[in-house]
Simulated assay, not measured.
Amino acid sequence: MSWKRGAYPEFTLEDAVAVLFMLQNPTGRKAVSEALDLGEGSVRTLLRKLLWQGLIRSTQRGHSLNGRGMELLEGISRHFSEVRRVGEIEGHPAFALTVREPGKFKSIELRDEAIRFFAKGAMILVVRNGEPIFPEDGRPLSETMPELAEKVKGAFRLEDGDLVVVTWAEKEADAMKSAYHVALSLKEEVLPEEIKSLVR
Rank of each mutant, 00 (worst) to 15 (best):
M1R: 10
S2D: 12
P9D: 04
P9K: 05
L13Q: 14
V19Q: 06
F21H: 15
F21E: 11
M22P: 04
L23R: 12
L23M: 09
G28F: 08
A31L: 06
V32T: 09
E34Q: 12
E34K: 15
D37T: 08
G39W: 08
E40Y: 12
G41T: 12
S42R: 14
L47G: 07
R48Y: 08
K49G: 07
L50R: 11
L50P: 09
W52S: 15
I56Y: 12
I56A: 04
Q60D: 15
Q60H: 11
G62F: 13
N66Y: 08
G67N: 13
G69H: 07
M70L: 10
L72I: 05
G75D: 11
R85Q: 15
G87V: 11
E88I: 07
G91E: 02
R100M: 14
P102G: 02
K104T: 03
K104L: 05
K106C: 06
S107A: 15
R111N: 03
E113C: 06
E113Y: 04
R116L: 10
F117M: 14
A119I: 06
A122M: 02
A122K: 00
V126P: 07
V126K: 13
R128C: 12
G130N: 00
M145S: 02
P146C: 03
A149M: 07
R157A: 10
L163Y: 05
L163F: 08
V164L: 00
V165E: 01
V166S: 02
A169E: 05
E170W: 08
E170I: 14
E170D: 13
S178A: 09
S178E: 07
L184T: 02
I195Y: 12
